[in-house]
């Protein structure tokens, strides 16, 4: 069984090496403050600020979409996504953005929306009177 032990040993060594390496890929959800201080690419889970402006004017620039979120520390910032506005964006409540700070704004490379689970109102069950 010697050879197997050698293989096992090598694999465990590689696994430890990978695990230490992989630690760099992981982080807690960050805040705008952390992003500003470190300058690194971070992931922030924030509340979508529905009262603030959501800007997307494709006729001017189809790759410029901005909105505001509030991070867990309570800081509210503008997020810029150089891309199109996702479908049903306004429905989301929590938004997870990946990116880094640039000046006053957070430049996102990726965003994930969490929409609330389907409506629980009585109304959706009842036939609409408008007729379909």
């Amino acid at each position: 069984m010697k050879k197997i032990y050698i293989v096992a040993f090598v694999m465990i060594a590689v696994a430890i090496g990978m695990l230490m390496n992989a630690a760099d890929d992981m982080s807690s959800y960050s805040s705008f403050e952390m992003a500003r201080e470190t300058g690194n690419k971070v992931k922030i889970a924030g509340q979508f600020s529905k009262d603030k402006e959501v800007h997307y004017d494709p006729e001017v620039d189809p790759n410029y979409f901005t909105f505001y979120i509030m991070d867990t520390e309570g800081e509210q910032r503008k997020v810029v996504l150089h891309g199109a506005k996702p479908q049903d964006f306004e429905m989301s409540e929590q938004i997870v953005v990946t990116g880094r700070m640039k000046g006053e704004d957070f430049i996102a490379s990726d965003l994930l929306m969490k929409c609330p689970s389907k409506y629980k109102d009585e109304e959706v069950y009842i036939k609409s009177t408008k007729g379909t």
Binding site: M18, A22, D25, M26, S27, Y29, K43, T98
Partner: peptide, 30 residues
């Protein structure tokens, strides 16, 4: 990772949890 976070949170509700910043690159690399 989300399961790990959840288990840690049982013992330490303050724990914020970890997430992979860029999952696709992370998996591809290994």
């Amino acid at each position: 990772l989300p399961v790990f976070n959840k288990i840690v949170q049982i013992f330490n509700p303050e724990f914020e949890g970890y997430t992979i910043t860029e999952p696709i690159q992370h998996y591809n690399k290994y």
